[in-house]
Every structure is written in C-alpha cells, then in structure tokens.
Nucleic acid binder design. Structure first.
Lengths: 184, 184
DNA sequence: CGGAATTTTGATGTCATTCAATGTGTGTGG
DNA sequence: CCACACACATTGAATGACATCAAAATTCCG
C-alpha cells in the first residue's frame, strides 16, 4: 500500500509506503480534502473506522489523541527524509536507503526474520517512489546485488549485508522515531 | 526560516520553509528526538513556548489540540507535495511551483500586496530546497524572468504573471488546505 | 498453456552538475 | 568616504547521471 500523487503531465510519485499496522488515512481526520490517493501495491486487507468516531475518542482521551498525533508526526518525519533522499542522494544511495527504511519498519512490526522480507513491490513502484525510471531502478538493483548487499527471489527480499546496506544507503533510523531500538 | 537535513556526504536539503506565523517545532511536541535542524535564512524574530505547557493545554482542550494537530498535518501535506515536486518535476516547473507555494502562503498571512513579496531567500537556499545546484537555479530563474513570469529586485519578488506562473509550476493549492480560497 | 505484467538489456539523448571564473552588491573598518 | 572583504549572482565549457526508446527475456497467474 502507498499514497500517490500525480503531476499535471501524468507522472506518478509515490509519497509513502504503508506497512502492516499503519493507519493510512489518519491524516484525513483533520484534513477535509484529500491531496493524494491511496492505492494498494499488492494484496492487502484493511480495517475501517469512521472519522467522527475517531474524533470522539480523541476528544475524550487526550492520551490516545497524542498517540495518534505522534503517529502522524512520524509520517511527517519520514516525508522529510524522503525529500532529502530524492533531493540530495544519488540513485544508488537512494535505493539502498529506502530498502533500509522498509526493512526496519517491517522488522519493527515483527514480520521479518533474518532480514528476509516479503516485499511485493515492483521495480516500477520503486521508481515512482524514488523519482527514477524503471530502467534505472533495475540497474541500481543489479549493482546492489553485484556488490553483495541484497538478494532477491520473486518478492522475497534479503538484506545479505545489512551493515553494508545501511552504509550504502546513508541510513540512520533516527527519523523513524522508534521507541525500541532495532538491533539486528 | 527553514528546516534542514544533512546527508552523510555533507549535502544539504532544506525540507521546509517557514513563513511568519508558522510554528516550526510543533512536531517536536511528541517527538523526543530531533531529526532535522532549524535555521534562519534571514533576520527573524521568534517566540518560544515550553513543550510541557503546550501539552498541558492540549490535554485540557481537545479543540485546541485538534487545531495544532491539523497544523502539523498540513505540514505533512506540504512535505508530500515537495516529494512529488523534487521527484517528478523538472527544474523549471519545480522552481515555479515552490515560488507559487511561497506566494500563496505569504499571501494567506497577509504580507503580500499585488503578488509582490519580500523573499529574503538566496539562490543557494532555493537550490537546497529543490535538490538542484545553485548554478542551475540561477539559469532557471533567468528563464522564468525571460518568459515574463517573475520579476526580482534584491529580495523583492514579483509574480508578474501569476496565472502563467501557476501553469508553469503545475501548481494546485489544494495541498495547502487553506480554509479561505486565495483569490488574486 | 498462453498472455500479460514485469524484468532485463543496449543504444542514444538530455537535463542538470561540476568546475572555474568573473561580475555585482553590501556592509565594515580605517 | 573610500577601500576592502565577503556573500551572492552570473557566465561558459565540459562532463556525467539518469532518462528515453525499443526490444527481448523472464516470471507470474488464471
């Protein structure tokens, strides 16, 4: 799952990926107009909750509101990092970085063992997330494989050399604001 | 004023500009660790408020909390647009777009007359916000001037052809989530 | 099994970077 | 009040990272 924006000339930018456990439209609670679209990149199961019900809960319980609020602030922090990633890092670094992010986020949801993740994300989706062409995404992935950093097989993704991938991706998980440090 | 991130190899990315009236560190209220730095791009005057005081207010008054929350959600929406801008628009469009955003935001604070704004922003800062080199920023600005879209004189900035700039920048103000439509 | 989606490859083009000067304005100290 | 820095803007030439185009190979899935 991800959120997507389209430019006037029809180019697509994926502005975020959602991992299991995320609440995609939490931002919609206080924003009456949608400024991006949600789409699933693979089979997904969703739960729904009415905005007014959510608002009622938040009105009544400030501590719960704070938790949801915090969640959206982390989303914002991730956006900041993406701006930086797309704006100032070259394609190779950029790719390594986003892979690190996905691994860490999936790991913190407990759906990864030994850095092996199920990533049902096409190269076209990666391209639209990173502001690259699919062709270049393909080449960069090959280079990451050649350098022994990653291994892929279908949708299975393995960070063979995690430390190396982190280094290659100029990755520092601080911006994900996890309470429990992710130790691999 | 803006928030800034640095990459491992020392490149700078400005992740947001603040206009008068913004609350830069609202995100810090529920995020214990800072993931970006704030810096002033020009002379600025600031007000300060303790986080715990803010939190106390928000705990007591859900409606005020909602307003602050909404403010951070708009920040997030702007980040989304910036990701799109940097990821999928070419330099010329990108520049026109960010200029539109600044004009609209300044206008909504009532500090613009006739599209003439005081923009104390160096070309280097624009470059770091747009993920471009200063040299290219300079050339793109010249092109915008040549096309009769903008006029600059020192820090004074004039959107000579607002409609044209909006078109050139593929700009749609929806993502700024203003309650009162900005009509020029 | 068959067709569509995805990945991969090669050749070529271009937008933007980098490097290296030069020009211009502005504030500071003598 | 001028000279001198220093920051900022501008210019040209050469290079490079990534895009685009087009086709082939592979995988996926009903």
């Amino acid at each position: 799952m991800g959120s997507t924006k389209l430019t006037g000339d029809g180019k697509r930018q994926i502005t975020s990926f959602f991992v299991p456990g995320d609440i995609p439209d939490l931002h919609g609670m206080h924003l009456s107009v949608l400024d991006c679209t949600f789409s699933s990149l693979a089979r997904a199961s969703l739960g729904f909750m009415r905005h007014d019900a959510m608002r009622a809960i938040c009105d009544r319980h400030a501590s719960i509101a704070a938790i949801f609020w915090r969640s959206t602030l982390i989303d914002a922090a991730i956006y900041r990092e993406w701006v930086t990633n797309v704006g100032r890092r070259d394609a190779y670094t950029r790719m390594a970085h986003i892979l690190c992010e996905l691994i860490v986020r999936l790991h913190s949801m407990g759906i990864i063992k030994d850095h092996v993740a199920n990533l049902p994300v096409t190269q076209a989706a990666l391209a639209d997330a990173l502001g690259l062409s699919t062709v270049h995404v393909n080449r960069v992935l090959q280079e990451l494989r050649r350098n022994g950093l990653i291994f892929t097989e279908g949708t299975r993704f393995h960070a063979v050399d995690w430390a190396g991938l982190v280094r290659a991706g100029d990755f520092d998980a601080t911006y994900l604001h996890q309470r429990t440090a992710t130790t691999f």
